[in-house]
Structure formats: C-alpha cells, structure tokens
Simulated scan of single mutants.
Amino acid sequence: MNLRKFGAALALGSALFSAAAMAHSDAAHVKAEGAWARASVPGQQGTGAFMRLTATEPLTLIGVETPAAAVAEVHEMKMENDVMRMRAVEALPLPAGKTVELKPGGYHLMLQQLKAPLVKDSQVPITLVLKDGKGAVSRLTLQVPVSMVPPKGAAPATDHTGHGGHQH
C-alpha cells in the first residue's frame, strides 16, 4: 500500500471511530417508546410530554431540552392531603432493564413558557439529558409526535391539560 492510500485509510478509520464515539455518547443507552406530547392551544403556556424509558445500564434523567419552550423540566404529580401537587424533580433514576413510565398523573416532562402552540399532528424535538454511574452525561434526541390523545401503546390520557390548577 502506498503512503497516500495508507494516509487515506488512516483518516477514514479515524473518522469512523469519531463518528462511532459520538453516536455512542448520543445514544445514551436508553430506549424511548410510546412518546407523545399533548397539543396546546394559543395562549396556553405549558403542556406535558410522555413516554416509556428503558435503560440498558443504570442511568439518571437529569434534564430536558427543547427549542419549543423556554423551560423544560422533569415533573412529578402526586396526591398530598387530597390535593394533586406537581413539582419539578432534579433527577429521575432509570434502573437497568426496568421501564420507567412518564405518564399523565405521574412523572412526566413539563414544557413551560411555550414559544408557540404545539399543533396536533406535528412533532416537537425533545432532548433527554442523562447521567451514568460514572458521571458521564449523554443526550437522547427525539422527535415527539404531538396529539390530543396518546398514540396506541402509550400511557393513557387523564385530564392533564395545562396544569393550571396544580400547586408547585
């Protein structure tokens, strides 16, 4: 092999290794299924996004990013003294091999200060920010369908529109 072909092969191998490394870190070792975001109406400031997450290794969901909202957080809804309360959580553990459901009325992604309404039958980009046991951060970017009702196989809908009456 001449020097030019060797250099080209080395450059190609290096590029492939770099691409594999980037894909690995972006893959985040987690599978998202049944994802959907609730459609909103003009003037509505917030909505929820839901899905099932299954990690292949212990991970922690530590953040959410989307260009569709000024604020995106992981939230938990639960009954406290006969009042449904919603609060942001800083971290949501994703045990290896166990499915964690983000659903209406439980843990979910909250998109607040929407920049525009989320229109039915469109998609919204959502990036999950995860941390592994060694502290390495990775991201999983999803194109989440927007709907008034969950798609087949997703978490069932409850009245969770806008979160206006919930206490933080």
Rank of each mutant, 00 (worst) to 15 (best):
V71N: 03
S18I: 13
M79P: 01
Q113A: 14
A39G: 10
M84P: 00
V41D: 08
V30Y: 03
V71C: 04
M51G: 07
A70H: 05
S40V: 00
L109M: 09
T127I: 06
A32H: 05
E65K: 03
L92I: 02
V71P: 02
V41E: 14
E73G: 05
Q45F: 01
A21R: 11
V74E: 00
V129G: 12
H24T: 09
R85M: 15
L94T: 08
L92S: 03
A21H: 14
E57Y: 04
M110S: 04
F50I: 02
S25M: 15
M84S: 10
H24L: 12
E33F: 02
R38C: 03
M79C: 12
F50A: 04
Q44W: 04
P58G: 11
H24R: 13
S25K: 09
K115E: 13
L130T: 13
Y107E: 09
S40K: 00
L111A: 07
L53G: 00
E73P: 00
T127R: 11
A39M: 11
I126V: 15
L130H: 02
A88Y: 03
G46Q: 12
A72D: 01
L16R: 13
P67K: 09
V83H: 13
V89D: 03
P104I: 00
A27E: 12
P117R: 02
K31L: 12
A32C: 10
A19D: 06
P117K: 09
K115A: 10
K98Q: 14
A32E: 08
A37Y: 05
V83C: 02
A70E: 15
F50Q: 04
V74Q: 01
P67Q: 05
E33S: 15
G63E: 07
L128W: 02
G63F: 02
Q113D: 10
A21I: 07
D26I: 00
A116C: 03
E80A: 15
V64H: 05
V100L: 11
R87G: 11
A116Q: 11
L53Q: 01
A37R: 04
P42W: 13
A37L: 08
A21T: 13
E101L: 07
T47G: 01
I62Q: 03
A91G: 08
V89L: 15
Q44F: 04
